[in-house]
Design a binder for these strands. Structure first.
Lengths: 233, 233
DNA sequence: GCCTGTGAAGGATTTCACAGCC
DNA sequence: GGCTGTGAAATCCTTCACAGGC
């Protein structure tokens, strides 16, 4: 190795390349906080607030102002010194960044009690998430009207995805069936999955999955409750 | 430094102190993973597997073996070299650590569509979470049978908590009402809260809160889907 | 005076890599 | 040979602190 060759492409240039490409990796924790910021900004906006500082926003969300500023700085300079952030425009920018300014096609698999509740949940629609198809393997449910569509046979899932692309899949089947459903969604081109089954399905790296499991959430809280009890008494 | 003095208080004693006190702060990320491990171990156990290595468990959960070993090492030495972990005993230990080997008293506030689905969800009971009281402010619901109890007037919440302690509160009210409900729960001694309202209530440091919001989960996934699309096409 | 954007520092978490043991 | 437990290294993330601007 010729140390003296000294073609040291040093950090700076590497970083420039990195940034110029769309490949500056933004930490996932940051991405996960953006929707929270967006929600708070929407609240402020609906209350007629037009300006907010990182300090105020931080208080609303129990997040440090520095973290908010740093998070936002990954995407640009949205604030004004001495003043803060313009609520409507920051909200718009965040929605653009997250892709919330479009419609997303969602397919739901599993129409048991949970699946039904999800299908009927009216919190998705206003946010641009539209359930375009619903599947179950119980023949008694086939054709049943739900979420503005009708229940299809799960066997049709693969064909359906082939014919009509779907962006996001929601899995609400029993744990034992979840991995198979996830695999078929992935094979069908679904790139994001919201999993309600109490299991951790595996997905390829280019697919994003989020597990929603209230039991796990409770089970981690008990650690702290238990601890608090023994500490205090 | 007298190397030969050999009063090496090393790891062992430090660890004893560590363990005897309850005050080594274990990272919250670690605590949050334990229930996932426990669930996987329960699966293995029910399949009759008696031994598992960090490698195998890691593959099941898409977690590195080193992380599993490190996480577990915060609590003790549960494995056997050359072999792995004994599934039933590790599961038992994790359940002890998390406090899952007892019953937890849960109060639910909000019996709208979502609250009803939660109340009827039969995934909590088997894990030791028992809904002992349910509240709503809609008089039409008062007295309605649900989750093995009957709906009470929200106005009674404070009195109820005073009289009969509850460990965990579940909030399933509209966003605007969530903070108030949380505050009253906290005042009533509730130390852990599972919040389904699409907002981020503030709690004092000694109270643990977990927000369950499928919309936020979707909204962070869209970032990656969007990105994948533009990258590939 | 107030507030952002950001390098640099500090802290936390993950991963490495290997001694020790079965 | 296989595997754990764990210091040390590496990486990742948060916080600090201040220049710059309103």
């Amino acid at each position: 190795m010729r140390e003296d060759c000294s073609l040291q492409i040093p950090g700076d240039i590497v970083e420039l390349l990195r940034i110029s490409q769309m490949t500056l990796e933004i930490p996932e924790v940051v991405i996960n906080r953006l929707p929270v910021y967006a929600r708070a900004l929407a609240d402020l906006d609906s209350q007629g607030e037009t300006v907010v500082s990182s300090h105020t926003l931080g208080e609303m969300l129990d997040v440090t102002p520095a973290q908010i500023r740093k998070d936002l700085s990954y995407f640009g300079r949205f604030g004004k010194q001495g003043r803060g952030y313009h609520v409507p425009s920051l909200l718009t920018r965040l929605r653009e960044i997250l892709g919330l300014n479009r419609h997303w096609r969602v397919a739901l698999v599993g129409v048991g009690r949970l699946g039904q509740a999800i299908a009927e949940y009216n919190g998705f629609g206003p946010q641009g998430f539209h359930v375009v198809a619903v599947f179950d393997e119980n023949p008694e449910l086939f054709g049943k009207a739900i979420a503005g569509t009708t229940v299809r046979d799960s066997a049709e899932l693969d064909g359906y995805l082939q014919a009509t692309p779907v962006d996001i899949g929601i899995v609400a089947v029993p744990a034992v069936a979840a991995q198979e459903v996830v695999d078929r969604m992935v094979a069908g081109g679904v790139r994001a999955i919201l999993n309600y089954a109490p299991t951790s399905p595996l997905v390829p790296a280019m697919v994003t999955i989020r597990n929603v499991d209230p039991v796990l959430a409770m089970q981690s809280m008990t650690y702290y409750v238990k601890r608090g009890e023994t500490t205090l008494e």
